[in-house]
Design a protein around this nucleic acid. Structure first.
Length: 170
DNA sequence: CAGTGGATGCTCT
DNA sequence: GAGCATCCACTGT
């Protein structure tokens, strides 16, 4: 996922920070099995899983495992490349470094909401372009999780200024 | 810069 | 009724 370009209605950028959530992972929404909320996590690869965070924000994940497994990758940050004006309007922020730096911010900038939960990414209005090979990345602990906090499953493009805070080491 | 607290809704106990 | 895979504004150095 790192280095891939994700666009929603032509607006988006290059993914520079993601987090993995596995089915046997106490921090994963799928840990206690399938429910109404997490059903999209059990869909086929390429399915979008969107949930509401802290009552306010939307957070977007991409299913990257076979159907029925219940695993997904949280999209945490992107480097804005397409539709900067639309993103600035949606975010109410001018600084390009803060448009997509964080899962709630990224979803807001790309216009992703609960209506997109369960949507397939290989169809309009989405565009997902594969990353170039050989992306240089760093692994670090996941942000904001209390269970399985030791797993270094937050992956960031090394030295990218577009990642969220707290900034990963090296 | 670091630390604190409020907003706010839904899921699961 | 607790607990969030968060963000922003505000405080004090």
């Amino acid at each position: 996922m790192l280095g891939a370009t994700l666009l929603v209605d032509g607006v988006g950028g290059i993914l520079v920070e993601v987090e993995a959530y596995a089915p046997d992972d106490p921090a994963s929404h799928s840990f206690n099995g399938r429910t109404a909320r997490n059903a999209a996590m059990f869909g086929p690869p390429g399915t979008l899983y969107v949930y509401r965070s802290y009552g306010i924000h939307w957070c977007a994940n991409v299913v990257c495992c076979p159907e029925g497994v219940g695993a997904a990758v949280l999209l945490r940050a992107a480097e804005p490349t397409h539709g900067l004006d639309a993103m600035r309007t949606r975010r109410g922020v001018d600084d390009v470094l803060r448009l997509c730096a964080g899962p709630g911010r990224l979803s807001q900038a790309l216009g992703i909401t609960g209506e997109h939960d369960g949507a397939p990414l290989d169809r309009p209005s989405f565009d997902l372009h594969a990353s170039p090979s050989g992306v240089d990345f760093v692994a670090s602990p996941r942000v904001g999780v209390t269970r399985a906090a030791d797993l270094p499953w937050r992956y960031s493009v090394r030295s990218s200024p577009f990642v969220s805070r707290p900034r990963p080491r090296a």
